[in-house]
């Protein structure tokens, strides 16, 4: 431990079935301002869940899927999320899709988008650094140049107690999509097949909306991921773990 490091204060809460972890440094690492910002973040995420969850029968997205409402009737965020999903579908050649088997499931967009959006409450904290993670996807911010960047460990796809790499970041987002802890949730929407060679993709981007969608897209693309990332996402550092134990680092 270096003597100059500002202490890191942490909080955890379960929302949307995900552990939401917050680390704060600096002036408002604790206290009423931090409490308020944290409450606002959680409130945002719960609201996003109410609107977007395909597992809640009464969510707007579920009603939209059943044809009971129109996109135009909902909050503008619904159109925004669908538009992001559509852009990802086009740019991925159809590998990423918020429509699967005729059902609308924008979860692949919503998490990153919602966390990025909720992080604005933390940005408003004066002279305070934060790292806000939702199940391993995070937004980071360092408010002042005299504090170090956040150090984000990239989890070993085969062992959740190990990290295999570190990202040092002052401002931006890190997202990882992998099959490690939840089985084959990510599939190539064109074939319905999960990746066979790729076990984990980490993408660093300016915001979590992009990082999350890109990581999911790359995982769905499996062996084609490095080529796709290099051609479609130059400038976004990425780290890929393969089933054979090898790794690929894209400098961005």
């Amino acid at each position: 431990m270096t003597g100059t490091a500002a202490p890191v204060r942490r909080r955890v809460e379960q929302v949307m079935g995900l552990p939401i972890s917050l680390a704060l440094r600096g002036r408002h690492d604790t206290g009423p301002e931090a409490d308020q910002a944290w409450a606002a973040v959680l409130s945002d995420l719960r609201e996003a869940d109410r609107v977007f969850s395909p597992w809640r029968a009464d969510s707007f997205v579920s009603r939209l899927d059943r044809g009971e409402v129109r996109a135009a009737d909902g909050p503008p965020e619904v159109r925004e999320v669908l538009a992001i999903g559509e852009r990802a579908r086009r740019e991925s050649g159809g590998a990423f899709d918020v429509v699967r088997d005729g059902r609308l499931d924008p979860s692949g967009v919503v998490k990153g988008w919602a966390v990025e959006r909720a992080a604005r409450h933390l940005r408003a904290l004066d002279d305070t650094d934060f790292c806000l993670s939702a199940g391993g996807d995070m937004v980071v911010h360092v408010a002042t140049s005299d504090r170090p960047e956040w150090r984000i460990g990239i989890e070993d796809a085969t062992d959740p107690l190990r990290t295999v790499a570190v990202v040092s970041l002052r401002d931006g987002a890190v997202a990882t999509s992998g099959l490690a802890h939840r089985g084959a949730h990510v599939v190539d929407a064109r074939t319905g097949r999960p990746p066979r060679r790729l076990t984990s993709v980490t993408v660093v981007a300016a915001n979590l909306t992009d990082a999350d969608v890109d990581a999911t897209t790359a995982l769905a693309l499996d062996a084609d991921a490095p080529r796709w990332l290099a051609t479609h996402r130059p400038g976004r550092p990425a780290y890929l773990q393969w089933t054979d134990g090898t790794t690929t680092r894209l400098p961005g």
Partner: peptide, 24 residues
């Protein structure tokens, strides 16, 4: 000294067994 861990979405059980949980 890692501040946070980026990994695949975890279930609550998976989370409890993860490095992130230890950090938290």
């Amino acid at each position: 000294s890692i501040d946070m861990v980026s990994g695949a979405t975890v279930t609550s059980v998976g989370y409890l067994q993860s490095l992130q949980s230890a950090l938290d």
